[in-house]
Amino acid sequence: MKAPSLTLGIEEEYQIIDPETRELRSYITELLESDHMIMGEIKPELHQSIVEVGTNVCRTPQEVRTELRRLRGMVMGLAARKDLKVVAAGTHPFSSWMTQEITPLERYIGVKQDMQDLAQQLLIFGTHVHVGIEDPEFLIDAMNVSRYFLPHILCLSSSSPFWMGRNTGLKSYRSVVFRNFPRTGVPRIMRGWADFNELQETLVATRCIPDGSKIYWDLRPHHAYPTLEFRFLDVCTRVEEAVCVGAILQAIIAKLWKLRRDNMTFRLYPSDLIEENKWRSVRYGLDGNLIDFGKQKESSARALIREMLEWFVDDVVDDLGSRAEVMYALRIMEEGSSADRQLAVYERTGDLKDVVDHLIAETEEGVTIDPNPSVQVRN
């Protein structure tokens, strides 16, 4: 069995903000009409106030950093032409989903017709991480095992404590909103590629879905590329946070390959238990406890994340050249996730507009805004 390429690709969804009102602003239609475009860099999403970007295929987290800085700078430059700002956070602190415009493209109109108000409510923003795995059997093995670590990493990326002007009491309210869609959550253990493929083909044959892109699990084999796609993350506010979670996921797959090569593996846990930990990460984030299923006891989220870093992936990060990027998680645990930092601003000022201003500033950290962006929307 050939070793996986472990390539990385990251997609991010951004909020377009009116800097006067701090509300979301419908914008993608204006971008679609632009005469200055480069294919493949930016694409629309369901709501017109969402802009999605995707990196080129990267070999290292350092390349991901360069790409994300470039893409954020490009989107910020485009937004600046209309005196608008850009935010990376899992939800907007107070804009209402009921007033948002749907992007007038056939596939999004179809989603709205199919899902009705569930689609209208989907005013959420995520990060998707792709890790290159060419062998389909190892891809399924890696998917089965890496499910265990999803709650740990969600704690690091949580950025959605507010919804429609309310402090939800959750660190990742985006996760709750998305769970309303069908075919979401932590997938069950798959017996192999044939098991997954049979499920996918049955769903297509019975007209549940047109293709595998409508399987919305927290992680899935991508329907078009030889990648394992991680879809459970809130969009990361700082570029360095996105680079960090991408590096951790790459390192986890590298470690699983090393175990597979040596005829070993990691224990598999049922989805029911992983969902319990996911709920804890959604509710409490870094400040909560997760369950150590092997020991059958609770430990602090920070302790289990540190164990993941120092025990599970430590022996592969130097070969990957990603130690600094992976260990950035220690800074997140020290300073708090984006959700924690947003809540701190709100506790200090009592004004959600200040939270938006804070998010604008953090989204721009390390980014040079491109004054002459030239992009093309990918349909």
Results as ranks from 00 to 15, higher is better:
residue 228 L to W: 13
residue 275 E to W: 09
residue 229 E to L: 05
residue 223 H to R: 09
residue 241 E to W: 04
residue 266 F to P: 00
residue 237 T to I: 08
residue 266 F to G: 00
residue 236 C to D: 14
residue 213 S to C: 06
residue 247 A to I: 04
residue 234 D to G: 06
residue 267 R to C: 00
residue 236 C to N: 15
residue 256 L to Y: 01
residue 264 M to S: 04
residue 263 N to R: 05
residue 213 S to I: 04
residue 243 V to W: 06
residue 254 A to G: 02
residue 240 E to D: 15
residue 232 F to M: 14
residue 255 K to A: 01
residue 254 A to C: 02
residue 215 I to F: 11
residue 281 S to N: 09
residue 232 F to N: 10
residue 253 I to Y: 02
residue 243 V to S: 05
residue 253 I to D: 04
residue 221 P to S: 10
residue 213 S to Q: 13
residue 282 V to F: 12
residue 237 T to D: 13
residue 281 S to H: 05
residue 263 N to Y: 03
residue 283 R to P: 05
residue 244 C to K: 07
residue 283 R to A: 13
residue 212 G to N: 12
residue 240 E to Q: 14
residue 244 C to S: 14
residue 217 W to D: 11
residue 229 E to W: 10
residue 218 D to R: 10
residue 232 F to I: 13
residue 243 V to C: 03
residue 249 L to P: 03
residue 279 W to V: 05
residue 279 W to S: 06
residue 250 Q to Y: 07
residue 215 I to R: 12
residue 229 E to H: 11
residue 239 V to W: 04
residue 248 I to K: 08
residue 246 G to L: 07
residue 240 E to Y: 05
residue 250 Q to P: 06
residue 224 A to E: 15
residue 212 G to V: 08
residue 232 F to W: 10
residue 219 L to T: 14
residue 278 K to P: 02
residue 283 R to V: 03
residue 274 I to G: 03
residue 233 L to S: 14
residue 233 L to Y: 15
residue 282 V to K: 08
residue 220 R to G: 13
residue 271 S to C: 02
residue 269 Y to K: 00
residue 215 I to Y: 11
residue 282 V to H: 08
residue 267 R to M: 00
residue 250 Q to E: 11
residue 212 G to S: 14
residue 215 I to A: 09
residue 220 R to T: 15
residue 216 Y to H: 15
residue 249 L to M: 15
residue 274 I to K: 02
residue 216 Y to T: 07
residue 239 V to F: 06
residue 284 Y to L: 06
residue 252 I to Y: 02
residue 222 H to E: 15
residue 226 P to I: 05
residue 212 G to D: 10
residue 272 D to F: 04
residue 254 A to S: 12
residue 247 A to S: 14
residue 282 V to S: 03
residue 271 S to P: 01
residue 249 L to G: 01
residue 261 R to G: 00
residue 230 F to S: 09
residue 226 P to T: 09
residue 262 D to Q: 10
residue 266 F to M: 00
residue 222 H to D: 15
residue 274 I to Q: 01
residue 234 D to H: 08
residue 267 R to A: 00
residue 273 L to S: 08
residue 212 G to A: 10
residue 253 I to S: 02
residue 234 D to I: 07
residue 227 T to G: 10
residue 268 L to C: 02
residue 233 L to D: 08
residue 272 D to Q: 13
residue 257 W to L: 00
residue 230 F to P: 07
residue 254 A to R: 05
residue 278 K to R: 15
residue 276 E to L: 14
residue 262 D to N: 15
residue 226 P to W: 11
residue 233 L to Q: 14
residue 273 L to H: 06
residue 275 E to A: 09
residue 251 A to V: 01
residue 269 Y to D: 01
residue 223 H to T: 07
residue 247 A to R: 08
residue 248 I to Q: 11
residue 280 R to G: 05
residue 218 D to V: 01
residue 212 G to H: 11
residue 255 K to T: 09
residue 228 L to D: 10
residue 264 M to W: 00
residue 215 I to K: 11
residue 260 R to F: 13
residue 228 L to P: 13
residue 238 R to V: 04
residue 253 I to Q: 12
residue 224 A to T: 14
residue 229 E to P: 13
residue 261 R to V: 04
residue 213 S to K: 15
residue 270 P to T: 03
residue 236 C to V: 10
residue 272 D to S: 12
